[in-house]
Simulated scan of single mutants.
Amino acid sequence: MPEGDTVWRQARDLRAVLEGQRLLSSDFRVPSFATVDFSGQLVSRVESRGKHLLMFVAGHVIHSHLSMEGHWDIYPALPGDRRARWRRPAFTARVVLETAAATAVGFSLGTLEVMPEELVSDAVGHLGPDLLGPDWDAEEALRRLLAEPGRAIGVALLDQRNLAGIGNIYRNELCFLARVHPATRVADVPELPRLVELAKRLLEANKDRPQRSTTGGPARGEAAMWVYGLAGKPCKRCGSLIRHDTLADPVFPTHAARDIYWCPRCQGGSEQPAS
């Protein structure tokens, strides 16, 4: 599941093949931008902001968001007229950017849009401090979380307006590490600054790993996670069976309730009020 660390790696890899390069061609496979052509234009920079990817080209920004299934693949240029075989179905490609050295293909992107550079704040201006960005500010993230003290910590952590980069895996793992049920009110979370610090440390520890681990163990299978996806399994800390439910966000009633996992002994009871 793409979260801030995944997007950071995507930006790093795309930067290596696109930044400072001229595009031989661009192919936007979404109706709204099908006529956009950046052929011959220089990609000046590539960066991530939370879960968003930004590519700056000729006074414009190519903005993408991976959502649940999106991914950018990079294929090296082959000799002659040969083309690398794509690893994903062609019908899921939303944009193809080609340079002399490589081709970058955005598959199944949840968001893809092109905008003038001066309007980039419309896409990412709402974001809180980026956990993996140069603007990271723990005090500002803490201030934003505390601005809604009655909100469940499990939904406040997912709100990218508070701090950018946490998805459902990290919010569940962070709540376990902080020993709080995801439905605990922000105001009732003990040592909230420590939780914010843990979020930064977890994403930093995983940003260079192809497979995520929050336990410090092998980055694969059940050993990689404390509680996420492990309903019915024994807690690695106390042996109690991990529980599962969903938690909705009243601030965004149209959003689907998301899965939560917790240990009833390490994190409290199975039912805790969100407000």
Score class of each variant (00 low, 15 high):
residue 1 M to C: 13
residue 1 M to Y: 14
residue 3 E to A: 14
residue 8 W to H: 15
residue 8 W to S: 13
residue 9 R to T: 10
residue 11 A to S: 14
residue 14 L to P: 05
residue 16 A to I: 10
residue 20 G to V: 08
residue 22 R to E: 14
residue 25 S to C: 05
residue 26 S to I: 04
residue 26 S to W: 05
residue 27 D to P: 03
residue 30 V to G: 03
residue 30 V to W: 06
residue 31 P to G: 08
residue 32 S to F: 06
residue 33 F to S: 09
residue 48 S to N: 13
residue 49 R to D: 01
residue 53 L to Y: 00
residue 57 V to K: 00
residue 60 H to M: 08
residue 62 I to P: 02
residue 63 H to Y: 13
residue 64 S to N: 07
residue 64 S to I: 00
residue 64 S to Q: 04
residue 68 M to A: 05
residue 71 H to V: 08
residue 76 P to A: 11
residue 76 P to C: 12
residue 78 L to A: 05
residue 81 D to K: 11
residue 81 D to M: 06
residue 85 R to Q: 15
residue 87 R to N: 13
residue 88 R to L: 10
residue 90 A to F: 06
residue 91 F to S: 09
residue 96 V to M: 01
residue 98 E to C: 02
residue 98 E to G: 00
residue 102 A to M: 03
residue 105 V to M: 08
residue 108 S to G: 09
residue 110 G to T: 11
residue 110 G to L: 11
residue 117 E to R: 13
residue 123 A to D: 14
residue 126 H to K: 12
residue 126 H to T: 12
residue 127 L to T: 06
residue 129 P to D: 12
residue 130 D to I: 02
residue 133 G to E: 09
residue 133 G to Y: 11
residue 137 D to F: 00
residue 138 A to N: 00
residue 138 A to C: 01
residue 144 R to N: 06
residue 145 L to A: 04
residue 148 E to L: 04
residue 148 E to W: 03
residue 150 G to D: 12
residue 153 I to E: 05
residue 163 L to C: 02
residue 165 G to H: 02
residue 166 I to W: 03
residue 167 G to L: 05
residue 171 R to D: 07
residue 172 N to L: 02
residue 172 N to G: 04
residue 176 F to K: 05
residue 176 F to C: 04
residue 176 F to P: 09
residue 177 L to H: 06
residue 178 A to F: 10
residue 184 T to G: 07
residue 187 A to M: 09
residue 192 L to R: 10
residue 193 P to E: 15
residue 194 R to F: 09
residue 196 V to S: 08
residue 200 K to Y: 14
residue 202 L to I: 11
residue 206 N to T: 11
residue 206 N to V: 03
residue 208 D to N: 10
residue 209 R to V: 02
residue 209 R to P: 04
residue 209 R to N: 14
residue 213 S to T: 15
residue 214 T to Q: 04
residue 214 T to N: 12
residue 215 T to S: 02
residue 219 A to F: 07
residue 219 A to R: 10
residue 220 R to T: 12
residue 221 G to P: 08
residue 224 A to T: 14
residue 226 W to P: 08
residue 228 Y to S: 14
residue 228 Y to N: 14
residue 233 K to T: 07
residue 247 L to R: 00
residue 248 A to G: 09
residue 248 A to T: 01
residue 249 D to R: 01
residue 250 P to E: 13
residue 251 V to C: 07
residue 252 F to I: 09
residue 253 P to M: 03
residue 261 Y to H: 13
residue 262 W to T: 02
residue 264 P to C: 07
residue 264 P to K: 10
residue 265 R to Q: 09
residue 267 Q to M: 06
residue 268 G to R: 10
residue 274 A to R: 15
residue 274 A to W: 09
